[in-house]
C-alpha cells in the first residue's frame, strides 16, 4: 500500500514537472514534490527520500534519453569545462545529486507545510 503511494508520488512528479518545465524555467520542477509532499501523509525522512527519488528519476529519464541521441561527447566536454576532469559520468552523477537534493528539500518543505497547518 505504502509502495503504491510512493509510485504514485513519483509518477505525478514526472507528469507535473514535465508540463511545468516545458513552459517555464527549469526550477519549476520542485513544485510537484513540494505539493505532493504536502498532500501525501508521510514522515519526514520518507518525504525527503521519495521527493529526492522522484526528481532523480525525472532528470535521469531525460538524461538517458538525450544521451541516447547525442552520445557522450557533449557531456564529456561539459565535464571538462566544469573541471570534472572530463568525466561525463561524474557530471551526470553531480546533476542527479542536485536534482535529488532539490526534490528532497521540496518534498520535505511540503511535509512541513502539512505539519504547520496541523493536517495530520
Amino acid at each position: 500500500m505504502k509502495f503504491t503511494k510512493y509510485i504514485l508520488f513519483i509518477l505525478c512528479t514526472l507528469i507535473i514537472s514535465a508540463v511545468l518545465t516545458n513552459f517555464g524555467p527549469w526550477w519549476l520542477m520542485v513544485v510537484a514534490p513540494l505539493i505532493l509532499g504536502f498532500i501525501f501523509k508521510m514522515d519526514g525522512i520518507t518525504a525527503f527520500s521519495v521527493g529526492a527519488i522522484s526528481l532523480v528519476v525525472f532528470w535521469g529519464i531525460l538524461i538517458v534519453y538525450h544521451l541516447n541521441t547525442t552520445g557522450w561527447t557533449i557531456t564529456d566536454k561539459m565535464a571538462l569545462l566544469l573541471h570534472l576532469k572530463g568525466s561525463g559520468v561524474l557530471l551526470v552523477i553531480v546533476s542527479l545529486f542536485l536534482a535529488g537534493l532539490l526534490g528532497g528539500l521540496a518534498s520535505l518543505n511540503g511535509f512541513f507545510w502539512r505539519k504547520a497547518m496541523n493536517l495530520n
Binding site: N22, W26, L98
Partner: peptide, 9 residues
C-alpha cells in the same frame, strides 16, 4: 545548464 529540460543536452 545541467538540467536536461533546459540545459546543454
Amino acid at each position: 545548464l545541467l538540467s536536461p529540460t533546459h540545459g546543454y543536452l
